[in-house]
Design a protein around this nucleic acid. Structure first.
Lengths: 243, 243
DNA sequence: CGAATAGTGTCTATAAGACATTATACT
DNA sequence: AGTATAATGTCTTATAGACACTATTCG
């Protein structure tokens, strides 16, 4: 622990946010267009420096979430991804950034913040495919955030954070399919979800109108850790060829 | 991202290390006795401030690992746990600490470093039971580290990092039992481990001498992610009573 | 009715856990 | 021999995935 008497040169501390949401069944991330150097004009994750020396990091993340995306804490998941502090990651000097993962249900178009030229939802696929380049090490941070979201979907009730308060099982399935990037069997999914006690609970005798038979509505249940976990098909199911 | 023109007051950056090892089939953590204020005389995780403004965080973790525990990078697992930055966590001022989890095979007694009054292996149980109190928020960091190690044992080949280069299946089982805090059936464990391709590979026709029948020796295989995962018995196996 | 979506049932391969049995060393 | 530990086999139950079927709305 911190014992050395000498004081190191100042290191700047910032937060970066990976804000994921679902729009028309596709996974999107909130990106801002940088209005100032460095990387002016490039796409980047929302974030910023700590307000003052006494501000809590998580509080700063919440503040940025509000400032840059106008999102409140209700019906929202916020979790630390980790610290990113490679010495050369920011040309302005030594900046260590603590990244947070935020999950939200479908949201409207965002408005650009103060020193941002624009703010918009981009499909995650745009970034991972390389069509869209991000400033700093934000591509790496985003990748880590997506991977975290994927594994959390297996072991926690995080998926419900993508949905509105009341949702159908089919909607919940779309969350899993979008984040995992796979197709699931609706019937097995139905069975599986209901087998996990406390994951979802029926929301009154309500139903919803569309084309076919009305679907039952559910809400997020009290359980946050899923037992048994939702198993991800790709490379997570059975053992591989023995070599 | 960092855009604001003003420079915040200096925040100190440190690293803390959760160094876990196995000694006589019990999980131990390396603790130092603090030689200076604050928390003088109390037990704490090893760690320290970054050397200079240009030092990489992971490099600092490696440096501390060498300085405080005389451990090299070979046969060692090092992984970031996260950033701990509550404003009041250090009475000296604003200190943000990036914690790392280090896993090592059985090691001899450590020697005290420069500004430490002592260094020793303590059983994890001593801390979790409350018999031993840690400085700062180190109890929380340790708890997070243990939990991380537990889940990583399920999904990765981390357990082999607790063993020497060559090990028997029984030894590997002891790792799981110690970290998870459960008892496992040797026969089922044997089957399970061998079913995961690439987890362990036979290490020559070697054998080892003790009392009974000699055991085959294995080394860590090329596979780092385990498919299927090693299932943890407690509360992770089957579904629960349906409310 | 027919189309469309929701929900239930059944079968099979595979994995997990309990536990018996055989194998190979030592004294 | 006897003891101790290693390795293998068998059986039962539960879970995962494929897929057929019934149910309920609308036009």
């Amino acid at each position: 622990m911190p014992d050395d008497p000498w004081q190191p040169p100042s290191i700047l501390l910032a937060v970066d946010l990976v804000i994921l949401t679902l729009r028309s069944s596709k996974l999107h991330v909130l990106l801002i267009e940088r209005g100032i150097e460095p990387y002016e004009g490039a796409q980047a994750l929302p974030g910023g420096f700590l307000n003052n020396v006494g501000e809590d990091i998580l509080a700063a993340a919440h503040r940025e979430l509000h400032e840059e995306a106008n999102l409140d804490a209700s019906r929202l998941h916020l979790e630390q991804l980790g610290a990113y502090g490679t010495p050369d990651r920011d040309p302005r000097g030594r900046v260590v950034s603590v990244a947070y993962l935020a999950i939200a249900p479908g949201l409207p178009e965002p408005e650009a913040g103060t020193d941002a030229a624009g703010a918009s939802w981009k499909t995650v696929e745009d970034v991972t495919s390389g069509r869209l380049r991000l400033a700093f090490d934000h591509r790496r941070i985003l990748t880590d955030g997506i991977e975290r979201a994927r594994t959390k979907l297996e072991h926690s009730s995080l998926a419900t954070a993508f949905c509105d308060e009341a949702f159908t099982i089919a909607e919940l399935q779309q969350v899993y399919e979008a984040v995992w990037g796979v197709e699931l069997d609706p019937r097995n999914f139905y069975r599986k979800v209901q087998a996990v006690s406390g994951f979802i609970v029926a929301a009154g005798p309500d139903r919803r109108t569309t084309k076919g038979r009305p679907a039952r509505l559910y809400r997020a249940g009290p359980r946050t850790a899923l037992h048994p976990p939702m198993s991800r098909p790709s490379a997570t199911t059975t053992s591989e060829a023995h070599l």
